[in-house]
């Protein structure tokens, strides 16, 4: 699949009004995250204790938090953490799941059965529990969160990749390649995996939305990014104590999470329509 072909559906998805709004928001958040240091005059960790709990004003558009730090600044930097952690974790998950699922689906047999059993087990387990166990093993922080989210969604992608491979492994071009003496690895990585990519990538995008929520939940338990590094979850975690005094500290990051996840879902739906793979992309 070449770049232009890959990007065409992404652009098509923007044509519907929902897709356009969703895509616009995502673009805004991503740009905000990347450009954070140039967009705001404040540092995310610079405290100004006497200036704590300011309501929104001309200097601080969303007000300040319990340390007098600018909330908007922290939201922008928080987007950096939340988005990158979720995306990287899902990236790990997709890569590992794709390989595991493809190998299991392609070779079948005992390996397939073993993978299926393990995958079914973790799949039926709530992601938050899988994630909590992993954080307990790896320890809190960004690494632990990455591992936790990565493993929590592994089952989903393994399952999807396996199903996709099973569906196409008997197709004629695969048989043709095999009869020409292509190795298993060559068939897997050249023919099979590339052909499963689009539904898996759409599923990955939707899962990134769920991962943002999971990251926020771990952050809420104080297990995610550690202070003073902001992430949306960590911001809400410290905001809990200020719930009734300064609801903004918890309101804005929560709204960002919700809006971003909604946008990902809407854009994902539009993308599914553009790719016409609806029936295959949803795993649950």
């Amino acid at each position: 699949m070449n770049m232009a072909a890959a990007l065409a559906p992404a652009a098509t998805a923007l044509r519907s009004p929902k897709g356009a709004i969703a895509g616009g928001w995502l673009l805004l958040v991503i740009l905000g995250a990347i450009l954070a240091p140039w967009l705001t005059p404040y540092g995310y960790d610079v405290q100004n204790l006497p200036g704590a709990f300011q309501p929104p004003n001309a200097q601080h558009w969303l007000g300040t938090d319990e340390f007098g730090r600018d909330l908007l600044t922290r939201l922008l930097y928080g987007a950096r953490t939340s988005l990158s952690v979720s995306a990287v974790a899902i990236g790990i998950s997709v890569t590992a799941g794709l390989i595991l699922g493809a190998v299991a689906g392609y070779f079948g047999g005992r390996l397939d059965r073993a993978v299926t059993v393990v995958v079914d087990l973790t799949w039926s387990f709530p992601e938050i529990l899988v994630a909590l166990i992993l954080v307990a093993i790896v320890g809190p922080g960004v690494t632990g969160t990455l591992a936790a989210i990565g493993v929590a969604y592994l089952a989903q992608f393994t399952r999807l990749a396996r199903a996709q491979i099973m569906a196409i492994r008997a197709e004629t071009y695969v048989e043709a390649a095999r009869s020409l003496g292509a190795s298993d690895a060559f068939i897997l990585f050249r023919h099979l995996i590339p052909n499963t990519l689009s539904p898996v990538l759409v599923a990955a995008m939707l899962a990134t939305g769920d991962a943002i929520i999971l990251e926020a939940t771990l952050g809420f338990f104080g297990l995610g990014a550690q202070p003073p590094i902001p992430s949306w979850g960590a911001m809400m975690s410290s905001g809990t104590a200020q719930l009734f005094r300064a609801p903004g500290i918890i309101l804005f990051p929560g709204l960002c999470v919700a809006a971003t996840v909604v946008a990902i879902n809407l854009y994902g739906d539009a993308l599914v329509r553009a790719l016409d793979i609806r029936s295959r992309a949803r795993t649950h």
């Binding site: 960790d45 610079v46 405290q47 204790l49 319990e66 340390f67 809190p140 922080g141 104080g222 550690q226 202070p227 003073p228 410290s238 104590a241």
Partner: peptide, 22 residues
């Protein structure tokens, strides 16, 4: 956590980079 974040910032003011673990 709140107190420790303030201590963290105060340590940074003299050039000590503290990482908080809870």
């Amino acid at each position: 956590r709140r107190l420790t974040e303030v201590v963290q910032a105060q340590l940074k003011a003299v050039g000590i980079d503290a990482t908080i673990t809870t």
